[in-house]
Amino acid sequence: MSELQDKCVQPARGPLLPAMESPEKEVPKEVKMTVRVGQPAIDFEASAFVPGVGFQNVKLSDYKGKWIVLCFYPGDFTFV
């Protein structure tokens, strides 16, 4: 997790696919990587609000070695 200045726009790298680590090997568009049970999780970096800390970029792999529950949800202020 890298410390950030509180800027208006914070780039984060998003999905960190193995093929994207080496830019010379472009991934063909039709190859769509998705997560499957029993397979390694796909790492990513996202900007985040961390309660008690502030704004930080967070990588999924920062939590490697622990049990992780990753919860997607449709949006803040939705009703459920």
């Binding site: 997560v35 499957r36 049970v37 390694p40 999924l60 049990w67 992780i68 529950v69 990753l70 919860c71």
Partner: peptide, 13 residues
């Protein structure tokens, strides 16, 4: 949408 993933300490889904 609501997607919930349990990932183990070996980073396996």
């Amino acid at each position: 949408v609501r997607g919930r993933f349990i990932i183990d300490p070996d980073f396996v889904v």
